[in-house]
Design a protein around this nucleic acid. Sequence first.
DNA 1: CGTAAATGTAGTACACCTACTACATCTTTG
DNA 2: CAAAGATGTAGTAGGTGTACTACATTTACG
Lengths: 85, 85
Amino acid sequence: MGNSEVTYNRIAMLRAERGISRRQLADALGVHYQTVGYLERGEFSPSLHLALRICAYFEVPVEVVFSLDPFPRLGAESNSAARPA
Amino acid sequence: MGNSEVTYNRIAMLRAERGISRRQLADALGVHYQTVGYLERGEFSPSLHLALRICAYFEVPVEVVFSLDPFPRLGAESNSAARPA
DNA sequence: CGTAAATGTAGTACACCTACTACATCTTTG
DNA sequence: CAAAGATGTAGTAGGTGTACTACATTTACG
């Protein structure tokens, strides 16, 4: 029973990081600006085609933006280059 | 007008490489065996969720299986480790 | 306050993904 | 030949992704 249909994404994070609005992203992707909102809110997942275009726009691998499992919080322990003295 | 909606995939290649049938792959993915056929024939693209499950099954990055652009033929010159003496 | 920009909610409409059933073809094996 | 497995075609049905319009809310700026 683990919500087996959900796909998680970090579109909002990447958009915040680059400092662009939903409308700007939507225009760059060629989709309706509401579609970006739906995706960020998790109301549904993008088509594979749109997902690939999103990753191409941000210039990152698909796994950076989309995942079958929830993304860890920023600062969560996981990688080996962490450890602040 | 370059067919802007198509997504290319190498499901058939990966499946051939591993020597499994469509039925076996479909069962492992939890989809109908005809769905795998539709995907391999390019009749439509998978949902993002299914695409991620396919890549997880084959244990490869998404870009290895799916692309907005056609995949090069095997043996086509492109990488730097080529050149057979 | 008035305006604009960014975001959220609501609702309709259509195209596409996926399941499923049935049947045809081709190849392999006994 | 008979049987089984892999693949292709055809058709129906239901759920989901995307477009689009309209309106509310919040924040920032003059």
